[in-house]
Design a protein around this nucleic acid. Structure first.
Length: 442
DNA sequence: TCTGGGGTCCTAGGACCC
DNA sequence: TCTGGGGTCCTAGGACCC
């Protein structure tokens, strides 16, 4: 018999900050923030930092005074560290069940319906302790018959200290009922306490619209008509109402999906009018994008670039250009030539470039080289390029990324973002390995 | 010559997520 | 002086066809 799904959402608390604290236990109990690229905005905050009023995305320069007053400890983002810790947690979860969807760097959904669990909340507490003991990261766990409700349960588990980080809207499945009456009552109580803007899928634009209709919390949305929800939010609104009522619309996506587009974009370390600086940046973006594309075993048929000036200065402007390939490619060399060529078309001296990026779209599998209408595909050139890139990837894989690269990337390096206060790469570079000093007897 | 309705495909922009 | 980066999906509207 196929059982209805039971979703568990396991979500790391203040993930980036928790990773930094792993190697700096002295920061426990102190306000800590992790900053975005160029040390621009706060993207992860400890609970102490939230309490003193630092919002998500707070620009660091505006909060400098608050940081100083409360002794807020700041870090530049250290993605190598966070990726490593993230993989440790997902591999632990994968050992519990293969029915796992890795949703983001700090969140995974599990389907528990096939596991012999008699008390879901007790199970959640065990797993929470297990992750803390083995990896050292605190997590919250929400369990429910739909993903939207699992998200909501997770958020409630984070906000209500008395829940101890775990909340389940399903007690057990012994009675074989999909969703028992006492479960529904419990779910309603928590939905009534969940503001409309906290619901997964309701963002800053839809929240005021819904409030205007008198729908101010999750329970009110669950009890509103699917038709009204669809009118206000499109098809997503109708599905949201169903999910809040326990009917699952969003299944567990176990298979890692292939990307449908790839983008690499950066704000420069400092604005520039120099075309060589921007070209070198675009060459580096092309290299990174092409690498990601090959890793997904795909080729691109349409690529584009864009540049912008600063949004926060008068005369903000942006430019973009795209090109369609007759023959799909994953060749770094061709992509660098094409994309830097597109930039030269739009370059204009005197413009203060602030940000630039590349986008790759319209992918085909890399083993599917289609001939064009005239059958003029140059398979020989294609094969040579593919072999060359396979060799480059193999070398960089063995000796470290960027060991072999195109000269266009090194033309100028002035664009690279600043990360002035990054923590050591404790777990990915030998020279950054933490040292343990033995305590000598006196 | 005049003309409506229905379908498909594409693109840009909007909305959301972490 | 200093305000992130990487994605997905849906929808409206235009072009085109019969």
């Amino acid at each position: 018999m196929k059982r209805p799904p039971v979703f568990a959402l396991i979500d790391c608390n203040n993930f980036f900050v928790s990773c930094e604290r792993l190697f700096r236990p002295d920061l426990e109990g102190r306000p800590v923030v992790v900053l975005s690229s160029n040390d621009g905005c706060a993207v992860s905050r400890s609970s102490e930092a939230k309490e003193i009023g630092i919002p998500m995305g707070a620009p660091a320069f505006k909060y400098r005074e608050l940081f100083d007053r409360h002794g807020v400890v700041q870090f530049s983002a250290n993605f190598e560290l966070y990726g490593n810790i993230s993989r440790r947690i997902t591999s632990l979860l994968t050992s519990i069940t293969p029915r796992i969807e890795i949703y983001s760097v700090d969140e995974s959904f599990l389907d528990l319906s096939q596991l012999p669990i008699t008390d879901y909340e007790a199970w959640g507490r065990e797993i929470r302790q297990l992750i803390f003991d083995w990896v050292g990261i605190p997590v919250s766990i929400g369990i429910a018959p739909t993903k939207t409700l699992a998200k909501l349960a997770n958020l409630r588990a984070k906000k209500d200290q008395s829940l101890d980080g775990v909340l389940s809207f399903i007690k057990n499945r012994d009675n074989r009922e999909a969703y028992a009456v006492h479960d529904v009552i419990k779910t309603w109580q928590h939905m009534a306490l969940s503001p409309i803007g906290d619901i997964w899928g309701v963002g800053w634009r839809f929240a005021p619209k819904l409030r205007g209709e008198g729908i101010s919390n999750a329970l009110a949305l669950a009890q509103s008509s699917p038709r009204l929800a669809q009118q206000l939010m499109g098809i997503h609104g109708r599905q949201l109402v169903a999910e809040l009522n326990g009917t699952s619309c969003y299944p567990l996506e176990v298979e890692g999906k292939l990307p449908k587009s790839i983008s690499v974009t950066r704000t420069f370390g400092q604005d520039t009018t120099d075309s060589e600086v921007v070209e070198a940046a675009i060459a580096s973006f092309a290299t990174r994008g092409a690498f990601k594309l090959r890793r997904s075993r795909q080729m691109t048929s349409r690529v584009s670039i864009f540049t912008t000036t600063s949004k926060h200065k008068p005369g903000y402007a942006s430019w973009s250009r795209q090109v369609i390939f007759q023959q799909p490619t994953a060749d770094t060399e061709l992509l660098i030539k094409t994309l830097t060529g597109l930039f030269r078309d739009i370059y204009s001296p005197g413009i203060m470039y602030h940000r630039a990026g590349i986008l790759l779209h319209d992918f085909v599998p890399d083993d599917q080289l289609q001939t064009d209408l005239l059958g003029t595909v140059d398979t020989n050139r294609h094969d040579i390029a593919r072999d060359r890139m396979a060799a480059v990837d193999a070398i960089n894989n063995k000796f470290g990324s960027h060991k072999i690269r195109y000269a266009a990337e090194d033309l100028r390096r002035d664009w690279t973002p600043q990360r002035k206060i990054r923590s050591p790469r404790y777990v990915s570079h030998w020279e950054d390995l933490p040292l343990l000093r033995p305590i000598l007897p006196k």
